[in-house]
Amino acid sequence: MKGQALKGHLDLLVLAVLADGPLHGYAVIEQLRERSADAFDLPEGTVYPVLHRLAGSGFLAGEWNESSGRRRRTYRLTDEGRAALQQQRSQWEQFTEAVSSVLRGARPCPNPT
């Protein structure tokens, strides 16, 4: 799935990935890929600005530590972020449910022949 299709959903996906526990950027991207069964194909670097924005907005908290001699920033979901995730997840579920309902009611196209 190309980035354009993810428009507007990446923030929610990042929050959801971090709901299970703190992760550093690389692990967040790995989780996104694994959970989507490699369906999300976007430049990995673009996830970092999202992490920074969510941290700047108070939805995530970042903490620096050392790993393999390198500085590593780990992100965790804040209470505010958890509440936002719950709210956004609920909205998403309502939306997909509505779309599914419409699609379930769709009649098959008549055969042109």
Binding site: L6, K7, G8, H9, L10, D11, L12, T46
Partner: peptide
């Protein structure tokens, strides 16, 4: 408002 970066 949840304009995502993947637009760039």
């Amino acid at each position: 408002t949840s304009r995502s970066l993947v637009e760039v």
